[in-house]
């Protein structure tokens, strides 16, 4: 097939990039349609689509705290994730630096981290409710605790993986600790930090739905629970798609951001 002209080559490349995903998506909808045909409580893809159009035609209505548009619910969830995740970054990244740079702190904190990291984030919710007294900060606390581990661990690993060559340069030049951190460690570990950030936002977005189901208020998680109580299954399916798409967007956004900081890839 080497006789193909450039236009045909490009067309082929585009086709190869779009046809398999389209087939996959088509099969998914087909299975969904079959399931909904045999189970009357599951709405069909068509009915769900109609419901979604209706839902997103007015995403920002506000009829009191218990009845707000889906847009408000998504924004409320994103806000919680942003605060919890931001606090985790603020504490986790510097902590990772200290652990990676100083053997003493690594030996001191490694057992605690190994012990607490595998704990399900939701197990922390009662502690949050107890200490913080309110549902809202407790949900943020759960996001914080779930997203801090990947950031600590990846940053610490990044610091220990800084090539010895760079550290030799630092030693020969007699760089101060401040300059070692700002001119060498920070840029050299940034790709690792970004990996930690990406993993953390993934976890945070996973956890927010469950946390909100338990705490209530507004937010996409509670909205799903609310629609379950209303027995509006179409809305639940829409919410699943919304959560998936937003998670995907966050992932893509951070991958793009990470690429800009990766000096090895250039």
């Amino acid at each position: 097939m080497s006789t193909l002209n450039p236009t045909a080559e490009r067309f082929k490349a585009i086709a190869l990039g779009t046809v398999p995903p389209a087939i996959g998506l088509g099969l998914f909808i087909l299975v969904w349609a079959l399931v909904s045909a045999s189970t009357p409580t599951i709405p069909t893809p068509g009915a769900t689509f109609v419901s979604a159009v209706e839902l997103f035609s007015d995403p920002f209505y506000n009829k009191g705290p218990n009845d707000m548009g889906i847009g408000w619910n998504i924004l409320a969830s994103l806000e919680r994730v942003a605060i919890g995740f931001g606090l985790a970054a603020l504490i986790g990244i510097p902590l990772g630096f200290i652990i990676g740079r100083f053997r003493f702190f690594n030996d001191m904190l490694a057992p605690i981290i190994s012990l607490l990291r595998p704990v399900s984030p939701l197990a922390w919710l009662p502690i949050g409710l107890l200490v913080l007294q309110k549902a809202e900060p407790a949900a943020i606390w759960v996001i914080f605790i779930s997203s801090i581990w990947p950031m600590i661990i990846n940053t610490a690993v990044g610091v220990t993986r800084v090539p010895q060559d760079y550290m030799n340069v630092a030693r020969v030049l007699n760089l101060s600790e401040w300059k070692i951190v700002t001119r060498i460690l920070l840029p050299a570990t940034l790709p690792y930090v970004m990996t930690g950030v990406r993993l953390a936002i993934g976890v945070a977005w996973l956890v927010i739905v469950a946390a909100e189901m338990l705490t209530g208020g507004i937010g996409i998680g509670f909205w799903i629970w609310d629609e379950w109580n209303n027995l509006d299954v179409a809305h639940i399916i829409i919410a699943i798609f919304v959560v998936g798409i937003i998670g995907l967007l966050l992932e893509v956004l951070l991958t793009q951001l990470a690429k800009r900081f990766d000096y090895d890839a250039r």
Binding site: Y166, N168, V169, V172, L173, N174, I184, D264
Partner: peptide, 16 residues
């Protein structure tokens, strides 16, 4: 080490 004795490394060791 000190800057009075500058080292040229085999693998250049430039900061990327």
């Amino acid at each position: 080490p000190g800057p009075d004795r500058a080292v040229v490394f085999q693998n250049h060791s430039l900061l990327p």
